[in-house]
Computed example of a mutant assay.
Amino acid sequence: MFTGIIQAMAPIASLEKQDNLWRFGMKFSGALLENLQHGASVAHNGVCLTVAGQTSDIVYFDVMDETLKVTNLSQCQVGDVLNIERAMRYGDEVGGHILSGHVAMGATLIEREATDTNSRLRFSCDEKWMKYILPKGFAAIDGASLTIGEVGKNWFEVYLIPETRSLTTLDSKLLGSVYNIEIDSQTQAIVDTVERVMAQKFQQ
């Protein structure tokens, strides 16, 4: 499990592409390497990956074809920088919200308005997901836990404070870039339950 509080940004040091599987070599340092064990879970742009190997400061992660189809990891190249979060431990402060590291969809950056103190980012996405994206609700965007601002038919906005701008890659991507989105699981459960109950009621 994760909290959506990005701990560091790390570059891709190597990328080995095999059939239906890519192996990422990530250059970690400092706290990211502390007591990191084989088999541990680490979120990369919000995608939960498992430590598959390690040599010095390079940590290896395997990414299956299905994950590549759903996430922006398929667009990555050597040298690209990713948002990284180690799995939460019991007793840790939860400053964001509980995440699984399972990306639901991609959203495209269609507008950015930046000032000296903050940024407003607008994303477009498939309309079918908008029922889970509510004003003042939560979503993880490339792994960062953020509060949703305004919402339209097939778009939504978030605001970035200086801390988020400096500690993540969220404000450094070009328009047209695709971001990984994990929707709030509680919101999804409530919406799906209400839809199912209402559908059963009208069938009676």
Rank of each mutant, 00 (worst) to 15 (best):
M1W: 06
F2K: 10
I5H: 04
I6F: 01
I6N: 14
M9G: 13
I12R: 06
I12H: 03
L15A: 00
E16L: 15
E16F: 11
K17G: 00
N20L: 11
L21M: 13
G25F: 08
G25E: 04
G25L: 03
M26N: 06
K27H: 12
E34I: 02
L36I: 03
Q37F: 02
S41H: 08
V42I: 13
H44D: 05
N45S: 13
N45K: 10
V47K: 08
S56F: 02
F61Y: 15
V63P: 09
M64W: 04
E66N: 01
T67L: 07
T67G: 06
S74E: 05
S74M: 09
Q75E: 13
G79H: 01
L82C: 08
L82M: 15
N83E: 15
G96S: 12
G96W: 04
I98N: 01
I98V: 14
S100K: 12
G101M: 04
V103D: 15
V103W: 10
M105E: 01
T108A: 02
T108C: 05
A114D: 15
T115Y: 03
T115G: 07
D116Y: 00
D116G: 13
S119K: 12
S124W: 12
L134E: 11
L134Y: 11
G137I: 05
G137R: 09
G137V: 08
A140W: 01
L146W: 00
L146E: 09
T147L: 05
I148R: 15
V151R: 07
V151S: 02
W155L: 03
V158S: 06
L160A: 06
L160Q: 05
I161V: 14
T164Q: 07
L167F: 07
L175H: 07
V178A: 09
I181R: 02
E182K: 10
D184W: 03
Q186C: 09
Q186W: 04
E195C: 15
K201M: 15
Q204F: 03
